[in-house]
Computed example of a mutant assay.
Amino acid sequence: MDAFLQQLPALLGVVIGALGSYLALVRSDQARFRREEAARWEERRLAVYSDYARSVKKTVTVTYRVAAALGCGTHPDPLPLDEAKPLLAEANDGRDPSGEALLMLGSVEVVDQARAWVVTVMERYVREGQRDPESWQALLARQRAGREGYYTAVREDLGLPPGHSARWRLPVTEPVPPQR
Results as ranks from 00 to 15, higher is better:
residue 132 D to I: 00
residue 52 Y to W: 08
residue 1 M to R: 13
residue 132 D to N: 06
residue 77 D to Q: 15
residue 4 F to L: 15
residue 58 K to R: 15
residue 166 A to D: 10
residue 124 R to H: 14
residue 65 R to M: 11
residue 129 G to C: 00
residue 142 R to E: 08
residue 41 W to I: 13
residue 130 Q to R: 15
residue 168 W to C: 04
residue 31 A to P: 02
residue 171 P to V: 04
residue 170 L to C: 10
residue 144 R to D: 05
residue 119 V to L: 12
residue 115 R to H: 13
residue 92 N to F: 13
residue 112 D to P: 03
residue 108 V to F: 11
residue 167 R to N: 04
residue 4 F to V: 13
residue 124 R to S: 14
residue 128 E to C: 06
residue 42 E to P: 08
residue 180 R to N: 13
residue 153 A to S: 05
residue 93 D to K: 08
residue 164 H to C: 07
residue 112 D to A: 10
residue 68 A to Y: 06
residue 94 G to V: 05
residue 146 G to D: 00
residue 125 Y to D: 00
residue 94 G to C: 07
residue 162 P to E: 10
residue 122 M to T: 03
residue 133 P to F: 02
residue 87 L to V: 03
residue 180 R to S: 13
residue 67 A to M: 02
residue 39 A to K: 10
residue 147 R to H: 11
residue 9 P to V: 03
residue 177 P to E: 14
residue 125 Y to T: 00
residue 87 L to M: 06
residue 47 A to P: 06
residue 145 A to C: 03
residue 118 V to R: 07
residue 48 V to Q: 00
residue 155 R to M: 06
residue 147 R to L: 09
residue 145 A to G: 05
residue 24 A to E: 01
residue 30 Q to H: 13
residue 138 A to I: 08
residue 65 R to Y: 09
residue 21 S to T: 15
residue 90 E to W: 07
residue 27 R to E: 10
residue 86 P to I: 00
residue 173 T to I: 12
residue 24 A to Q: 06
residue 95 R to M: 14
residue 169 R to K: 13
residue 149 G to A: 10
residue 146 G to T: 00
residue 9 P to K: 09
residue 178 P to W: 08
residue 75 H to G: 02
residue 15 V to T: 09
residue 142 R to S: 05
residue 24 A to L: 07
residue 100 E to H: 14
residue 49 Y to A: 01
residue 1 M to K: 13
residue 177 P to A: 07
residue 81 L to W: 04
residue 122 M to E: 09
residue 12 L to V: 14
residue 174 E to V: 13
residue 41 W to A: 10
residue 26 V to N: 07
residue 4 F to Y: 15
residue 56 V to P: 04
residue 129 G to Y: 06
residue 106 G to A: 03
residue 43 E to A: 15
residue 4 F to A: 14
residue 103 L to D: 07
residue 23 L to A: 15
residue 148 E to M: 06
residue 36 E to I: 02
residue 135 S to C: 01
residue 149 G to W: 02
residue 99 G to A: 03
residue 127 R to D: 04
residue 9 P to E: 02
residue 65 R to G: 02
residue 59 T to G: 13
residue 58 K to H: 12
residue 53 A to Q: 05
residue 63 T to P: 01
residue 3 A to P: 02
residue 6 Q to E: 12
residue 80 P to E: 10
residue 78 P to K: 04
residue 84 A to G: 05
residue 17 G to H: 05
residue 22 Y to V: 08
residue 56 V to M: 06
residue 135 S to F: 01
residue 45 R to V: 00
residue 180 R to H: 13
residue 69 A to E: 11
residue 132 D to G: 01
residue 56 V to K: 01
residue 146 G to A: 02
residue 123 E to C: 09
residue 27 R to Y: 11
residue 154 V to A: 00
residue 177 P to G: 04
residue 82 D to W: 12
residue 49 Y to G: 01
residue 29 D to L: 14
residue 154 V to Q: 04
residue 130 Q to M: 09
residue 159 G to I: 07
residue 3 A to F: 13
residue 31 A to F: 12
residue 53 A to G: 07
residue 96 D to Q: 15
residue 141 A to N: 11
residue 51 D to G: 13
residue 48 V to T: 03
residue 51 D to M: 14
residue 18 A to N: 07
residue 153 A to M: 01
residue 54 R to M: 11
residue 45 R to S: 03
residue 6 Q to F: 14
residue 163 G to T: 05
residue 113 Q to G: 04
residue 63 T to F: 03
